[in-house]
Simulated scan of single mutants.
Amino acid sequence: MTNPNRGAAMAMRRFGRRAGVPDIAEVPGGRLVELPGRGRTYVVDIPGPEGAPTLVLLHATACTGYLTWFPALDALAERFRVIVFDQRWHGRGIRSERFSVEDCADDVVAVLDAVGVEQAMCAGYSLGGVVGLLAAHRHPDRVSGLVLCATPYRFQEKLRERAFHQTFGALADAFGPYAFQRAELHHGRLPELPEHTWAPGRFERWALTEFRSTSGWALAQVIAEVGRFDSSLWLSTLTMPTAVVVTTRDRAIPVYRQLEMATMIPDASIHLVKGGHASCVLSADRFVPVLLEAVAAVAARVTSGRARSGE
Rank of each mutant, 00 (worst) to 15 (best):
161 E>S: 14
161 E>H: 10
162 R>I: 07
162 R>Q: 11
163 A>M: 15
163 A>S: 10
163 A>C: 12
163 A>I: 13
164 F>I: 01
165 H>N: 09
165 H>F: 15
166 Q>A: 07
167 T>D: 05
167 T>C: 10
167 T>G: 11
167 T>M: 08
167 T>F: 05
169 G>N: 04
169 G>R: 00
170 A>D: 04
170 A>F: 04
170 A>W: 03
170 A>N: 03
170 A>M: 04
171 L>H: 02
171 L>Q: 11
171 L>A: 11
172 A>L: 00
173 D>G: 07
174 A>Y: 09
175 F>P: 01
175 F>W: 12
176 G>P: 02
176 G>M: 13
176 G>C: 08
177 P>V: 00
177 P>N: 02
177 P>E: 00
178 Y>V: 15
179 A>F: 04
179 A>D: 08
180 F>T: 02
180 F>W: 14
181 Q>H: 14
181 Q>F: 15
182 R>V: 06
182 R>A: 11
183 A>Y: 04
183 A>L: 07
185 L>S: 14
185 L>Y: 14
185 L>R: 14
185 L>W: 13
186 H>V: 02
186 H>G: 02
188 G>M: 14
189 R>N: 06
189 R>M: 11
189 R>D: 07
190 L>T: 04
190 L>A: 01
191 P>L: 09
191 P>G: 12
192 E>D: 14
192 E>Y: 13
193 L>Q: 14
193 L>V: 12
193 L>D: 15
193 L>F: 13
194 P>C: 04
194 P>Y: 10
194 P>D: 05
194 P>G: 06
195 E>S: 12
195 E>G: 03
196 H>W: 07
196 H>A: 05
197 T>P: 02
197 T>Q: 08
197 T>I: 08
197 T>C: 06
198 W>E: 01
198 W>Y: 02
198 W>Q: 01
199 A>H: 04
199 A>I: 01
199 A>F: 06
200 P>W: 01
201 G>Y: 01
202 R>T: 06
202 R>N: 05
203 F>T: 12
203 F>A: 13
204 E>N: 06
204 E>I: 08
205 R>H: 05
205 R>S: 10
205 R>T: 14
205 R>A: 11
206 W>H: 09
206 W>C: 03
206 W>Q: 05
207 A>N: 04
207 A>C: 12
207 A>P: 03
207 A>V: 15
207 A>L: 11
207 A>Y: 08
208 L>Q: 03
208 L>R: 06
209 T>L: 13
209 T>E: 14
209 T>C: 09
209 T>P: 03
210 E>N: 09
210 E>C: 09
210 E>V: 12
210 E>H: 12
211 F>Q: 06
211 F>G: 01
211 F>I: 07
